[in-house]
Computed example of a mutant assay.
Amino acid sequence: MANCNTKTIFVLVSVAEMLTATAQAQTPVERGRYLVEGILTCGNCHSPRGPGGVIDAAKLYSGGPQTFDEPTFTVKGANITPDPDSGIGKWSADDLKKALIEGVRPPGVPLAPIMPYGFYKVFTTGDLDAVVAYLRSVPAVSNKVQAPVYKAALHVEVPPGADKRMTDADLREPVKHGFYLVTIAHCMECHTPKVNDRLDFANGLGSGGQSFRGPWGESISRNITSHQEKGIGAWSDAEIKRAITQGIGKNGSQLKPPMGFEWYARMTDADLSAIVVYLRTVPPKE
């Protein structure tokens, strides 16, 4: 990475080793909660909201309020609590894993790719088990969500380098660890432009430009490549972390949803540092 001296590299390696040790010290449910309630931002799509857009804590993960109406499907965020009738209470652990990394729910029904299972293929075995353990531990909430409507064949986006499971050994390498976190956070799903309704990873990875409309009005995903002017190449580490966790830009402006600032604020500083390390390696794009 540019401007990295030997001392910095040593510190980053030490951080990566610490992250691995911390993850191993947590129980599966604790690790799963950290992932689901933090970097995965599952509640963004799978939890109902009350007045002012605040998530209803009593109905966490029981189904999202928004409808995703795309050219190939119309769906709402599913109930992912252990309710046996309206949620995932009758699913086995293997059923959940298959849904997360293959996008198939029992009895073999495909999931709409608004669920970023193409990005979840990198999950380590331990983290995948942890997510499943946590989801099966949350309170069951009865809430039937409208059935999905599929209008055409589904296309699944898999970002470069994310087509296979990563290992704990991979996560000891700082850049790979950051890539892992950015991938399971599906950052490039929003921060890569689309061409013909497909994410243009080959030509525009991280260069932003997608439009999102909601109660906040319209927001355009920004360029998060290492480009010095168009991207975040000139931002300090602290400025990047502040943008991720507080939604404040380099110039102090307030950034708009649907970026899950409140979820990312629960991440450890070590994980945020790993993300910054990786983002600085993303090739500059205008």
Rank of each mutant, 00 (worst) to 15 (best):
V104H: 04
D83W: 00
E102W: 06
A25W: 11
G52A: 07
P107G: 13
D127W: 10
V15H: 03
F261V: 06
P113D: 11
C4Y: 11
K194F: 10
D56P: 08
L279R: 13
F179G: 00
H227V: 01
P116W: 05
E286R: 15
A270G: 04
D127F: 06
D269E: 14
A93T: 10
L181T: 02
P215Q: 10
T167R: 12
V36D: 00
M115N: 13
A265N: 05
N196A: 11
K250P: 01
K7Y: 10
K59C: 05
Y120Q: 12
L100G: 00
M188T: 10
R165K: 14
D271C: 09
P174C: 04
S86F: 00
C4M: 12
G108A: 07
N196R: 09
G209F: 06
K7N: 08
A202E: 13
Y264Q: 06
A78V: 05
Y278C: 07
S226D: 04
K97P: 12
E189G: 13
L100I: 14
A234I: 02
D69I: 08
K176L: 15
T67H: 03
S137F: 08
F261W: 03
L154T: 01
P116Y: 03
V141Q: 07
P159N: 04
I88P: 00
I220D: 12
G89Y: 05
R222H: 03
M1G: 15
R49F: 13
A234W: 01
G206N: 02
K97Y: 12
N251W: 02
L96E: 00
L171W: 05
G217Q: 08
K241N: 04
A130H: 06
